[in-house]
């Protein structure tokens, strides 16, 4: 079986989060799908006008929250109570508001934190971008956008990719099953494809963000694609390539394919790609 690895975690293409000026980066909060795996809501990019340097939309509930399992809300577990509600700790409340003045929007953020957001909330968050006017001298497309669902963010990325007139290269992933039980295989495959797209598309000049450290470049480093490479001599549009060459802070960096795996509770690998 061929071990196919993908680039997705290291190199999440993010044409919609490209920041044109580095000095504005502190006013932008952003979460990528790769960095928010434990969330039901994937908030991709925060609009600086609404969330200056804040984590307002970053505090969403963990996945699979229940009242009886170990995956309950963190403040309902015994460890929390012993740490913060007894002799050893206290809960302190900070009142007042210094950033969000709109009560309706605050209520929306509360619903996000509680995992009880509605379709209208999703639309309202998406509309924060539609109603925003960029400051003079800044291109509208260069400003990060807030999108509450991963699918909506993918739509933006796809549109931005379509606007680049360069040959398109594909990086397909192929799942290799290690588990033998069919039911386990099906579950593992679903889990894998929650986080790894079946195909990664890229073009030269497409903006990218590193989602994990590559060489001396830490997570979050931004740059753009300058080329593609193939170990087996493959090349050209539509070909499956081995690595991507990125320009990060003036330096060329080769980004290789990475292996993604799904494990069971015993730590055994079930499937990888």
């Amino acid at each position: 079986m061929r071990s196919l690895r993908v680039l997705f975690a290291i190199l999440r293409v993010s044409s919609s989060v490209f920041i044109s000026k580095w000095d504005r980066a502190d006013s932008i909060g952003c979460v990528s799908p790769a960095l928010s795996r434990r969330r039901t809501v994937t908030v991709l990019f925060c609009l600086s006008a609404c969330f200056p340097g804040a984590g307002d939309v970053l505090e969403s509930a963990p996945v699979k929250v229940t009242d009886i399992s170990m995956n309950s809300w963190v403040f309902r577990c015994a460890t929390w109570r012993s740490a913060f509600h007894g002799h050893f700790g206290r809960v302190a409340c900070v009142s007042g508001g210094h950033r969000q003045l709109d009560d309706a929007f605050l209520a929306l953020l509360d619903r996000l934190s509680w995992r009880c957001h509605t379709a209208a909330d999703v639309a309202a968050v998406n509309a924060t971008w539609e109603n925003f006017s960029p400051p003079p001298g800044v291109a509208r497309d260069d400003i990060p956008k807030l999108r509450i669902l991963k699918a909506a963010a993918h739509d933006i990325n796809r549109d931005r990719l379509g606007s680049i007139y360069e040959p398109r290269f594909t990086f397909p992933s192929e799942a290799v099953m290690v588990a033998t039980d069919p039911a386990e295989q099906a579950r593992a495959l679903v889990d894998l494809h929650k986080f790894v797209d079946p195909t990664f598309l890229a073009k030269v000049s497409r903006p990218v963000i590193f989602m994990r450290r590559v060489g001396r470049f830490p997570t979050g480093t931004r740059g753009h694609i300058v080329g593609f490479g193939s170990r087996a001599g493959e090349s050209g549009e539509g070909q499956s390539m081995a690595f991507i060459v990125c320009m990060m802070e003036g330096e060329r960096v080769e980004v290789e394919r990475q292996r993604f795996s799904v494990y069971d509770a015993a730590g055994s690998e079930l499937v990888f790609c």
Binding site: F88, R90, G97, H98, R99, Q100
Partner: peptide, 9 residues
Amino acid sequence: NIAVLGRAG
């Protein structure tokens, strides 16, 4: 130990 509690902003 302290848990700091407050709304967004």
